[in-house]
Design a protein around this nucleic acid. Sequence first.
DNA 1: TAGATTGTTAATCGATTAACAATC
DNA 2: TAGATTGTTAATCGATTAACAATC
Lengths: 207, 207
Amino acid sequence: MASSPGIPDIVIGRLPIYLRALTQMLQQGHSITSSHELGQRLGISSAQIRKDLSHFGEFGKQGTGYQVDHLLNQLKNILQVDREWPVVVVGAGDLGRALAHYRGFVARGFRVVGVFDTDPKKVGTGEDENRVRNMDNLEDFIRKNSVRIAMLAVPAEAAQAVSDRLVAAGVRAILNYAPITLAAPPDVHVQYIDPVMHLQRMTYYLE
Amino acid sequence: MASSPGIPDIVIGRLPIYLRALTQMLQQGHSITSSHELGQRLGISSAQIRKDLSHFGEFGKQGTGYQVDHLLNQLKNILQVDREWPVVVVGAGDLGRALAHYRGFVARGFRVVGVFDTDPKKVGTGEDENRVRNMDNLEDFIRKNSVRIAMLAVPAEAAQAVSDRLVAAGVRAILNYAPITLAAPPDVHVQYIDPVMHLQRMTYYLE
DNA sequence: TAGATTGTTAATCGATTAACAATC
DNA sequence: TAGATTGTTAATCGATTAACAATC
């Protein structure tokens, strides 16, 4: 999770938000926008958006604003999603299969190229790229396909062990759906998705 | 999303992380811990953990640390997850069904009490509480069951309209899986889960 | 030109960390 | 008692915001 250069992590975290909003704007036919308009949509100040973008260059025009498609492409380039990253899904339970079937990845830079599970009943089920593979072949597959990104949808008890195998095989980014904090080397990026944590954050404010 | 009292939002957001780690510690048989130990596990400084907790009271003992089960219960109380919140899932696609089937909610304060979809082919499928209900009955169901929390797993195009209906019916917390920013009144809390945004955040650092 | 909006600097605000007295 | 760790204060650090010259 180390970030050597000068750009704050929190800024990087907002770029995908901008990217998503700009994509939507383009779909809605907006060809020009401004930091003010974008900010209003997202509940972010216009100053923050301009400041964030200024870390990477100048993308706008005084008096006019930003060309949506141009800014979009710049952000894709910065985030390195102007290409298609192969991704493996580990765990073929309900969630793993939902991830494997999800149609929204490709348009945004990712393609699920392999799904893995230990359960012999699950291995072999599913169509094409979603055919569930045996976990024994995990490392081979990752190496042969130069996979750098994995989504982890196994039970909490298994998550750390699987994570270690992924890292050893060359994975450098893990999106972990198991509700535990993973231990990983500093050059491996881990992000967490745990719906319960989001819900618990909201119940604090309820009533 | 308004937070009137003095406790920073960012602090509230860390409490579920502490809660999760403490639960795991208890399972592993630790009955006592310290801010230092907890911090190491989570990659957070011990000072920050003590500072965060100090907003809510004094939960430790000098020289000793924290009684895990006691701190756990205190945090559950603060976050209001020392009870069981009824939750509806809207959208019975792959993701919605995965959420409906997920066994991990109940132990952490939430119970899926209803699943809704517009598709007549889906309505009526599923067992017991997971039986998919017709969207026409959404408002009635929410009111009758005093539901305050919803998980939104519908296509992006439908999300805003469904959100408006949920809010009108009394929902005050929405966990949105659709990849769009929702517009909602200030007293409605919205959290977002978009795996692609997490992936895009990591690709920035790859290579 | 007049109006609008950028990119950037300086000021403000808030969060994190370091340090330590209190005390178990 | 001696060692350890809390809760809290003050210092540091970093992020956000306000303001504005530049300029399209």
